[in-house]
Design a protein around this nucleic acid. Sequence first.
DNA 1: GTCTATACAATGATAGAC
DNA 2: GTCTATCATTGTATAGAC
Lengths: 192, 192
Amino acid sequence: MDARDRLIEATRELLWDRGYVGTSPRDILARAGVGQGSMYHHFRGKADLAAAALRRNADEMRASGETVFADGTGVLDRLVAYLTRRRPALRGCRIGRMSEDPDVLADPRLRAPVEETLGWYRERVADLLAEGQASGELTTGFAPRQVAATVVAVVQGGYVLAKAAQSAEPFDDAIAGAVALLTALRTEEEHA
Amino acid sequence: MDARDRLIEATRELLWDRGYVGTSPRDILARAGVGQGSMYHHFRGKADLAAAALRRNADEMRASGETVFADGTGVLDRLVAYLTRRRPALRGCRIGRMSEDPDVLADPRLRAPVEETLGWYRERVADLLAEGQASGELTTGFAPRQVAATVVAVVQGGYVLAKAAQSAEPFDDAIAGAVALLTALRTEEEHA
DNA sequence: GTCTATACAATGATAGAC
DNA sequence: GTCTATCATTGTATAGAC
């Protein structure tokens, strides 16, 4: 792994744990094990490096979503697979965490990966729900876009609860509750 | 409003918008319109002042919860009232926001108000759901504690989505979706 | 490309005048 | 109680050697 890559990886870890304002170039250099010259050679500054790190986070998270939402089983099964995927409850979401950082929101280069990724997840879940309604697997008594936002919000909010409690339990509860609520959307025929 | 109070109020606003690491004593003094001597007379330092501010946030949020969860109508009506309460989607939750700040989580005096408040909301919602099951208003096919975590998580996660999108729409969607999902928990008799 | 040295503002706190 | 120095440390960036 070359210096540029080490810098990006170190930044990804620090952004995850401490956010953008909480992460200093000094911290990044120490963790990456490179000098300042290296960083300012490859990047224009902290924001530029953070943008590269967030772009990588977005790519990774998107790829992971593509996998879990892929065809193969019923719609509800895929949604449950998404919800119950193993997650680091106490560490939170690499992308979602950034929305709490005003400096990130203020910089279009930093906000774009965040907005795009969460927007994509909402859309993707909405598509799945609509597909389930069309196929008769799910009831038609709800708006896919709304419930999709609910589903994605549960995951993000679950992290908040887990961090506040310093325990994974509220996260697991929130996910389990969401699964129970979604399961209730099955049509009667499918119950059989 | 005396200097001490002005300091607390200024801190509450800054913590809300910029978090703990993003808020400096300098910012606080400027907004409160007092000098440094005043702050270090009334408080031992930044952490002590922040603790006072978060305590006030917790008290306020708890009181607001007591009101909306109070008796008077059906359980579902109260839950919907809680979910659809007018909220500043783009600004987020004064308490929930703090869970993303590692320095807050690391300091017991700062974390306590956050943990207590969100824990109290989860418990309160769980009690309501159990009450609804006991009275026959809600189905018994779910675990109150789990769905309660889901409900509270939707609000917290809705803020994340709204900030990421810089739009209240995903927040409103998440809430509306949650209302739709909860409404499906009504027993058949109640539908009439 | 990477390092060290340097610069300069901001952070968080202390000391002492009034 | 409040104000104005003052201070050590950190944050972010630049300059120039190698």
